[in-house]
Design a protein around this nucleic acid. Structure first.
Lengths: 213, 213
DNA sequence: TAGATTGTTAATCGATTAACAATC
DNA sequence: TAGATTGTTAATCGATTAACAATC
C-alpha cells in the first residue's frame, strides 16, 4: 500500500491513464525501456511533468536506462486500480447508455459494467451489449448484491438527481454524470460531470476566429 | 463586436454554458431577475465566480434587482455563439457516433451536426439519426460545401490521427476528439480530448476508499 | 438611511515550468 | 571522466477565494 501521493489531481490521473495506454502499445511492440522525454512527447506535456506523475505512483527510473516498461505498467496499475477492480452500474439505457455499454464491453477488466438499469419494462430483464439490465426499482438490491461502487448516469436531466440520490443511498462512492445538471451530492461521493454539449460549446468558442489566443 | 474578454478559461465557458441552460429553464418558469448567489448555488461555485463570468460576457447586474434573465441569456448567447452558428461534422458512425448524433439532434440550433462520415459503404449515403452520412473520401468537399468549422472524431484510436489530418487540411478549426489518442495538430486548431475511459478511471480513483482527500 | 448586492482589489492556493544538483 | 537523464527545489503562472468599497 505505502502512502498514496499527498495530492494527485484529476489531470494527473488522466495523464497516468494515458501513459498506461501508450505503454501497453509500446510493450506489445517489444519496447523495454523508455525515457521521460519520450513519454512527454507522446502525451504532449513536459518531461518534468511525466517524472512527477511517475514519482506519484511510487516508481523511479534510472538515469542510465529510464523507466522499465513492464514494471512501470504494473506500478501504474497498482496505483490506479482498486484491488480486484471496482464494479460499475449504468443507469439509463438510451442511445448514449447503449453506446457506453458497447464502448466499455471487455475493454477495462478492472472497471466492469456489471449491471444496467432502465425504467422501460421492455429493456429491463434483458441483456443489452452483454450487460444485464434491471428495472430501476431493484437498484438498491442489485448494487448491494454485486458490490457496485461506481455508477454512470445517462438518464435525462430531469431524472438525474433522483437517480443520483438512489445510488448514493445504495452506497455508491463515485458517479460519472452525463446529464446536463450539477448534482447535489454528499461530500464523500466523488462526482465527475461530462456534458457533451458543454464540451462541444467549448470547442466552438475557442475554434471561433474571433476567439482570443 | 467589442473586446472579448482577455482571458476566458475552458472552465469559464463550461460554467457559462451551464448558466445559459439554467437560465433558459428559469425563464420558462417566469423568473425575470436572478442574483449571483442564486446562480452560484445552482452551479456549485462562488457568487464571485458567477459575477466574474458574467462580467466577461459584458453584462452587468444591478445591486437592486440582480441580473435580468432574458437579456442575460441574450448576452451569453452573443458571447458563446458565432454569428449564425457553426456547422459540425461527425466522423465515425459507430455506436458512440450514432449516440452523439441522436444526442445533438435538434438540441443546439447553433451547433448543428450537418454531416457524418464513415468508411462503411452501407452507412455512407444514408441518413442516420436525421443526419446525412457520406463516405470519408468526400470529406474535403463536403466540409467545404457545408462550411463546416468543427468536427467530432469518433473513429477507433488507430484511425484518429489520419482523420484529424484530413479535417485540418479541409479547414476545420476545432476538434472534439473521443478517440483515446493525443492528436498532433497545428496550433491554430483547437482540440478537446474527451476519453470516457479516462473519465471513468478518474472517478474510480477518487471514489476508492484509500484515495486521498 | 439601512440592508443587500454589485464590481474591484489583494491574498491564497494549486499546478506547471524552469533551473539545479545528484546519479548512472 | 563525460554525457545524459534522473529527482529536487525555487519561480512562475493562473485561477479561485476572501475582504473591501461602491451602488441601488
Amino acid at each position: 500500500m505505502g502512502k498514496r501521493a499527498k495530492a494527485v489531481s484529476e489531470k494527473s490521473i488522466g495523464r497516468l491513464s494515458l501513459y498506461r495506454r501508450l505503454l501497453n502499445v509500446l510493450q506489445a511492440e517489444g519496447v523495454r525501456h523508455i525515457f521521460s522525454h519520450q513519454l512527454a512527447a507522446m502525451a504532449r506535456c513536459s518531461p518534468a511533468q511525466v517524472r512527477r506523475d511517475l514519482m506519484a505512483v511510487g516508481y523511479s527510473g534510472s538515469p542510465a536506462r529510464g523507466y522499465e516498461v513492464p514494471r512501470l505498467i504494473e506500478s501504474i496499475r497498482e496505483f490506479l486500480d482498486a484491488p480486484g477492480g471496482q464494479n460499475v452500474a449504468l443507469v439509463g439505457v438510451g442511445n448514449l447508455g447503449r453506446a457506453i455499454l458497447a464502448y466499455f464491453k471487455g475493454r477495462r477488466p478492472n472497471l466492469r459494467i456489471v449491471a444496467a438499469f432502465d425504467n422501460d419494462a421492455y429493456k429491463a430483464n434483458s441483456v443489452i451489449e452483454g450487460c444485464h439490465c434491471y428495472p430501476t426499482d431493484l437498484l438498491a438490491r442489485v448494487v448491494e448484491d454485486h458490490r457496485i461502487s461506481l455508477a454512470i448516469i445517462t438518464v435525462p436531466a430531469g431524472a438525474a438527481q433522483g437517480v443520483a440520490d438512489a445510488l448514493v443511498a445504495a452506497g455508491v462512492r463515485g458517479l460519472l454524470n452525463f446529464a446536463p445538471v450539477r448534482l447535489r451530492i454528499p461530500p464523500h461521493v466523488y462526482v465527475s460531470d461530462l456534458d457533451m454539449t458543454v464540451s462541444l460549446e467549448t470547442v466552438a468558442y475557442f475554434a471561433h476566429p474571433d476567439a482570443p489566443r
